[in-house]
Design a protein around this nucleic acid. Structure first.
Lengths: 215, 215
DNA sequence: CGAGGTATTGACACACATCAATAGTTGTGG
DNA sequence: CCACAACTATTGATGTGTGTCAATACCTCG
């Protein structure tokens, strides 16, 4: 199912009756507060499962909004249950994906709770870069972030103004180079050291997982 | 398996070869930064699964440290895989528990990213209170937090000094009353309104889950 | 060409950090 | 049971990172 750019797929508070599989494009998950401020919770890429956190709750915890024009497939709760009954290995992979997301949220929490703005921004850009690399999209290549500085500010828990100043700081330090929204890392290891968040190594195809075709 | 109070069960960076089921007592999950600062990621209660976030990674992402003297059971990765093969309903419940944890982390991220210190503390105390109520421990009763203000500061992303001042603020506003580490809420709804984090309603025993005895 | 969003910059305010000191509390060993 | 040490809580004075308000430039698209 294709969507237009900058469209709400599901709003926080809505009934959470299914999941979405993101096949193409970018989607952000965010939550708003009564005072109008907003926190971006996750920048989703192709391959991600969307909307799963709201499953145990009576209504959706996050707003899903398209950035680019994405392609999304819908999975019902019953369909998910069917996977858990028939395809235990796939179910286990869904479970592990949820744990990965938890660790990414923990890293964000550490970053917002304990790092100053410049390191926070570096950690975020690095996280996006690493995930793009894992998808094979960009290895050493510049990344093209389809996000305004306002959105990035909502990721980092900063104001737009300060985010802009911190971008300028990173650029002056030579940690990044910018051409519009395209960002390049002249020395990625320097950025890694600067950010302070440890590099995570995901282990794929672990041998303790249930066999592929179990019955 | 019993543990002493204030003991490390598993340190971040250690091999993550199993999970733990917390049967009794309190355990906190935290991560440290190179500069010595620390972020508490989760306060675990009886019934929680510990150590799951590290499963997809080559080494543990979080340090698990006992607060009280807890009772913990160990589950191997193979044992978890066995559950996914044989007990799909239980596997699904594990999956949903992980999604719940994601939402709690999101709430913490919103809180640390977008709320000022006093609301942050209120939201944290409220979260603990609600979870104790869900366990049937404390409904309207005062809560006894076995945590120093330093630990609470590491939850909130604040300094010890400021956490202390914010405790005093909440007390002066009449939102909490303290006797040592015992905290009471004279008007819990006022605290809820003040905190700004929406109340989450978890739906148990959802009808789309796989049947109890599937085969 | 004009309009609305986005990026950038400056001046100033404030929430929280930092440094430092004191008091209170807990635990431990003699 | 007291004495001492270590930890924890509290309070004050001062510094600073980030927020707020405001203005201008830029950019994209009709």
């Amino acid at each position: 199912m294709p969507f237009a750019a900058n469209t709400v797929i599901r709003h926080e508070g809505d009934a959470a009756n299914h999941l979405y599989m993101l096949h193409d494009g970018w989607v952000i998950a965010s939550a708003g507060l009564s005072d109008g401020s907003r926190q971006v919770l996750k920048v989703h890429f192709p391959g991600d499962v969307l909307g799963a956190p709201s499953l145990p709750f009576s209504c959706s915890a996050e707003t899903l909004r398209t950035l680019t024009s994405p392609v999304v497939a819908t999975v019902s709760k019953a369909g998910l249950a069917e996977i858990f009954v028939s395809l235990p290995r796939l179910a286990m992979l869904f479970f592990l994906a949820a744990q990965e997301e938890r660790v990414f949220l923990m890293d964000r929490l550490i970053s917002v709770g304990r790092l100053r703005a410049s390191k926070r921004l570096a950690a975020f850009l690095l996280h996006i870069y690493d995930r793009l690399c894992a998808m094979g999209v960009s290895d050493g290549a510049p990344i093209d972030l389809p996000m305004s500085q306002e959105m990035i500010a909502d990721v980092l828990g900063l104001t737009t103004v300060h985010t802009n100043r911190v971008f300028a700081q990173l650029e002056m330090r030579g940690l990044i180079a910018r051409r519009g929204r395209i960002i390049e890392f002249p020395d990625i290891m320097a950025v890694r050291r600067f950010s302070g968040i440890p590099t995570r190594h995901i282990v794929r195809n672990q041998n303790w997982l249930p066999a592929m075709l179990s019955r």
